[in-house]
Design a protein around this nucleic acid. Structure first.
Length: 310
DNA sequence: CGTATTTGACCACC
DNA sequence: GGTGGTCAAATACG
């Protein structure tokens, strides 16, 4: 069920992508297509939210007023995946597509948090380990050229706060937190580790959700969109131009069909994840994620209202 | 001088 | 006690 809708959505998105120059002159057609895609993904998203709610038991964030944290988590995952240029949606939607034998690259696994117990240390309670709701593990291809030590760029700004040798791994694990952690109390963290059997692949572990890009005062966030029925000015986004020249190293890797090349192959030939491509292009088109924030915030508006409706 | 990274030590958890 | 995650002082960098 979902996968059919997704395929349809992918197809629509791809058609949009191909017809973008034309559609740019027909904002109404563009708008209709956007609406359709949004509707499709919305339905799938709601199901996944329910599913993921069962799976992860998202505790929500901040207690008061955090009623719609799960969609945010999902969107963050999608953002991370699409930014990475990986078919991360396969994790979200791949359950039914032909018993998807996922390769080692681009695989995403939700990991349920064991307990929520916070150790009440008598002397210190500032170093709690078991925090945040869920964590996501994904693998991403490393660049085949250039600096291999460079952690994968994913559109967020991370600050490294630690590195550790991991038992049984050749390579150390690096620990990053969101640069805006202090300013905006953003709890997002990620771990980067190179696979010992495949140095060209990073294993990324994301935990926590970015609150910095949600904050209206956050540096990367555009001015909050007012309540509106119209979508953001998608026609003004540098979609087509950047699609033609994605210079991101991840994109290069994926299209180059490198050694661990199960990533792109797992998608139908007529649907090479155009949505991810579009998102990737959008992220790569600017250093800040403002355009994506624009899109996601508007989508969230939509989706939030949909969720509240239901 | 402010910010990011490095790195040894500390701490939580198993 | 071992291992992994985090802290924080020292250091590097722009």
């Amino acid at each position: 069920m979902e996968e059919n809708l997704i395929l349809y959505g992918c197809k629509l998105a791809k058609e949009m992508e191909q017809n973008l120059p034309m559609l740019a002159n027909q904002p109404e057609a563009l708008l209709a297509s956007c609406e359709e895609i949004i509707t499709i993904f919305n339905g799938v998203k709601e199901r996944l939210v329910a599913l993921q709610g069962n799976l992860m038991g998202f505790p929500g964030r901040g207690g008061a007023g955090g009623s719609s944290s799960a969609p945010r988590e999902l969107m963050d995952l999608i953002s991370a995946q699409t930014m990475l240029g990986q078919p991360g949606l396969d994790f979200m939607f791949g359950g039914g597509r032909g018993a998807g034998k996922a390769g080692p690259v681009g695989e995403v696994q939700p990991v349920a948090n064991a307990t929520d117990s916070i150790r009440t240390s008598p002397s210190r309670n500032l170093r709690r380990r078991k925090d945040e709701g869920g964590k996501f593990v994904t693998t991403v291809a490393a660049p085949q050229m250039g600096n291999l030590d460079l952690p994968p760029e994913d559109g967020y700004t991370w600050r490294k706060y630690g590195q550790k040798e991991i038992l049984g791994s050749k390579y150390p694990r690096s620990y990053y937190r969101c640069t805006h952690q202090k300013l905006y109390n953003c709890p997002a963290k990620k771990q980067v580790q190179r696979l010992d059997d495949d140095p060209f692949t990073f294993e990324l572990t994301y935990r926590g959700t970015h609150t910095c890009h949600m904050s209206s005062t956050a540096p990367s966030a555009p001015a909050p969109l007012p309540e509106q029925t119209l979508p953001p000015p998608t026609s003004s986004l540098p979609l087509s131009s950047s699609l033609a020249s994605t210079s991101h190293w991840l994109s290069m890797h994926i299209t180059s069909g490198a050694s661990t090349s199960t990533s792109a192959a797992r998608f139908p030939a007529d649907c090479p994840l155009p949505v991810a491509d579009m998102a990737d292009a959008m992220f790569n088109s600017g250093s800040s994620s403002s355009s994506m924030d624009l899109i996601f915030s508007s989508m969230d508006d939509k989706w939030d209202s949909e969720v509240k409706k239901g």
